[in-house]
Computed example of a mutant assay.
Amino acid sequence: MGLLVVGGTAFRVWQVARVDDRDRADVVVVLGAAQYAGRPSKVLEARLRKAKTLFEQGVADHVVTGGGRREGDRFSEAEAGKRWLVDHGVPADRVIDVGEGNDTLGTIKSVAGVVLGKGWATAVIVSDPWHSLRARTMARDAGLDAWTSPTHSGPIVQTRETQAKYILRETAALLYYRSTHASADRIAIDQEVG
């Protein structure tokens, strides 16, 4: 039975990763990833490029960047994301940075609070493909009507070995979240993606 649950969850992680839903929404939400002195990491930049494309295609009128700061950082992941988007042509008044949360769950809860507080309800989540199912699940649990449009570029999707690693990692993280409704960082799963 356990193998069926794990195998079925891994299949859903893989399946949802392949779905690129660009239906109209209130906001595009970019989940944070590492930044260095205000400069997005390659993982975060791939997410920001995807969000910019969605914004330009009219999927949503606003982009929300999420993610807090690590100890010693001058910028939050959200601030670095907003700066990148504005520097690349997205109007500053169309980007909302939510600089709270140092893991997926904390970021999603903070973003949902801001989005719902503005009277919006629908969101397209941009993250890495393998992270999509867990991010969508958490967003829905936080009260958002959410779907995903994952990035298909960047270091996390380049090799089959890397993809397999992240599918296994996300399978464990999603099973942990579903059983505890707690952040997966407690089991060292959620350090890079979030």
Rank of each mutant, 00 (worst) to 15 (best):
P150V: 02
A173V: 09
T171P: 06
T162A: 11
I189M: 15
I156K: 02
L168R: 03
Q191D: 08
I189G: 02
D190H: 00
A164E: 12
K165N: 12
Y177L: 03
S149A: 15
E170I: 06
I156M: 06
T162H: 00
V157T: 14
P155I: 11
Y166Q: 09
R160S: 13
L175D: 04
E192Y: 07
P150W: 01
A184P: 10
D190E: 07
R169P: 04
D190R: 04
E161N: 05
R169L: 15
P155E: 14
I167M: 09
R169H: 14
T180K: 08
D185V: 10
D185Y: 14
H152K: 09
L174M: 11
Q163F: 04
A164S: 14
K165Q: 12
I187D: 03
L168W: 11
P155Q: 08
Q163Y: 12
D190A: 07
A172K: 12
L174S: 02
E192G: 01
R169N: 11
Y176W: 15
Q158R: 13
Q158W: 06
V157C: 02
A164H: 06
T162C: 06
A184I: 04
A188S: 13
Y176N: 05
Y166L: 14
Y166W: 14
S149K: 00
S179G: 07
P155W: 05
I167F: 06
E170C: 10
Q158K: 13
R186F: 12
A164F: 09
T180A: 07
S179N: 05
T180I: 07
Y176E: 05
I189A: 13
Y176T: 03
I187E: 02
L168C: 09
S149H: 06
E170H: 13
T171S: 07
Q158A: 10
Q191V: 08
A173Y: 03
T162Q: 13
Y176I: 04
D185R: 12
P150C: 05
H152E: 02
D190K: 02
Q158P: 00
R186K: 14
R169F: 01
H152V: 00
H181F: 11
Q191Y: 12
I187S: 01
G154F: 08
A173T: 02
L168K: 05
R160N: 06
E161F: 11
P155G: 05
T171F: 01
A172E: 08
T171C: 03
Y177W: 11
K165E: 12
P150Y: 01
P155S: 03
H181A: 12
I167A: 07
E192D: 15
L174V: 07
I187V: 15
A188D: 13
T159I: 04
D185E: 15
R178Y: 01
R186E: 08
E161R: 13
A173D: 12
T162R: 14
H181I: 03
E161S: 14
T162E: 10
R186W: 11
T159F: 06
T171D: 03
R169G: 01
